[in-house]
Write a protein that binds this DNA or RNA. Sequence first.
DNA 1: GTGAAAGCGCTAACAC
DNA 2: GTGTTAGCGCTTTCAC
Lengths: 340, 340
Amino acid sequence: MTTIKDIARAAGVSITTVSRALNGYSDVSEKTRKKIIELSKELNYSPNTLARGLVMNKSKTIGLLVSGFSKESIKDNFTFEVLAGINQYAAETDYDLVLFNTNSTMQREKTYTQLCRERRVDGVILQGIRTDDPYLQEVVESNIPCVLIDIPVETDNVAFVSTDNVLGAEKAVNHLIELGHRNIAMINGHDHAFVSRERLKGFKQGLGAHGIPFREEWAVNGEFTEKEAEKAALELLKKYPEITAVFCASDLMAFGAVKAVSTLGMSVPQDVSIIGYDDILLAEYFSPGLTTIAQDRQMLGFSAARLLTEMLQEESAPKHIVLETKLKIRQTTAQARNRS
Amino acid sequence: MTTIKDIARAAGVSITTVSRALNGYSDVSEKTRKKIIELSKELNYSPNTLARGLVMNKSKTIGLLVSGFSKESIKDNFTFEVLAGINQYAAETDYDLVLFNTNSTMQREKTYTQLCRERRVDGVILQGIRTDDPYLQEVVESNIPCVLIDIPVETDNVAFVSTDNVLGAEKAVNHLIELGHRNIAMINGHDHAFVSRERLKGFKQGLGAHGIPFREEWAVNGEFTEKEAEKAALELLKKYPEITAVFCASDLMAFGAVKAVSTLGMSVPQDVSIIGYDDILLAEYFSPGLTTIAQDRQMLGFSAARLLTEMLQEESAPKHIVLETKLKIRQTTAQARNRS
DNA sequence: GTGAAAGCGCTAACAC
DNA sequence: GTGTTAGCGCTTTCAC
């Protein structure tokens, strides 16, 4: 494998000159530069990034710590779309991505910091970790530049990007209220998700803005899974026949809720309106089409990557980005009717 | 950042001894080993993989060259599931994954070999490239260990994994024939996909085995997209009213075909049976549920990763793996009826 | 069982 | 403009 040494020998110059020429420094005569560039092509030279990284103490790589490689996340595709966004941005830079994985027992033995330091990644993007994940604590304590997706932590070396979950939830509630619903329940994710807390907040705000009191017992957790949400919806709808609409904090959970409604011999949206959150691909293909709050997951990843590279270049980079959401009206929401 | 030098100093030994102790060599006294291990924990040491890679001339990383980060591939999810499989296997090894991307204009300037050599990846997995992709030629010529997904090239340093596309297609055809269909059309991908050629072969074999002649004009290309397939199906069904069933080489294309049928005022499966290939998530959620040939994409990735690590360890590793497919009967296929 | 020394391929002072 | 030199953190002969 060709090294700069080989080129230096062939060109009759020192390795320093080769290095300088190849890296575009100005203090090399045009003539020697040309010769060196030519020779490097001829000899089929590729720089050794390991060696370069070793001496420069940076690797031009971004570490990815994503939790969503399970069966479940294949369904909602969240991880992949975020990944696609990150990849898309990275493609325009000279950073490569290295995929760490947190879901294996073996990797769990290594701490977040170890993972990153061993590979000498310049920065990290974290996605899909819970607020009580031990890794999170480490992030804050370590001094590795880091961008969190959907977790609002902001320090000198950590930034975050998320969507406006409060406003998003409020949009959902507003939509239901505009359709005449007053008795609205919510199926949330779990308490260790930042987005859940935010969406609950938005839910309450939406109700409050229209003078509708928030009822504690109408807001339950569905753990972000279809199954749990179905169970929760079943109980809720049985116990409180006055409920005419349910806001679910994820589309997958909304599917569960729809199933629950039909299990009870009712239909969506005639008897109960259901609105989801995410706008995953299935939402459109689901029958009936799911009304939901759309968030641009790819942009989430794209922005995260951009934010991180900015952080790596300048001190004064912005420290967080909040993206907008959009209401997608499909067939699971309709005018309120009395079902009791 | 702690280095072995620091540990050596703290332990009062040479760096050689530290290196040996940390790497589990036998010729270190238990006493010093213990001390070194302890010290390394205390000092919060992480080995520098760049330095190690530089001297050992391998990086313990696997390069991933996948083409599917586009909008379209979010729909079929193929890339992600393969990725999940690779990741799952990698999690059990000490290899990390580096994501290269081929879809950007910038990266196109770098050759396959450059990409790999710069990062000093130990091996590569390629997925989603066409048989006429210039990268493919390079793979064969380079001496970088490589596993191809769904492209049958086998040399000293390249192996492949795929599913049995011939048999898969034959299963599809058999299913249709068993339902009484004799006039069966096929909508294939494109000629530069190995899987397309194989599936066509299986299609012909299936017909032949039952004495049904293959009609050239009934086998058209749909470019693996929903839109193109819809167009193709529309033409086909209009022109040849005797066709009662269509085998599509991907689920996405099958969706297009279903749409075409309904555009023509007919219904699936009463008038025309449609069978897909892949069993993507949407196939199940699609209405009506799509009958299809299922392939285990995650296993595809998992096997590729396993094969590659085996190649990296021993010379005598097996050089290809072919996975089985499975017929999934849902609602788009039914008993043949005369529609002309 | 342990250490000295060389070197992996590269960059970056510092001279000239 | 160009070369000399040192050194990034590690592994690996080769001595002892």
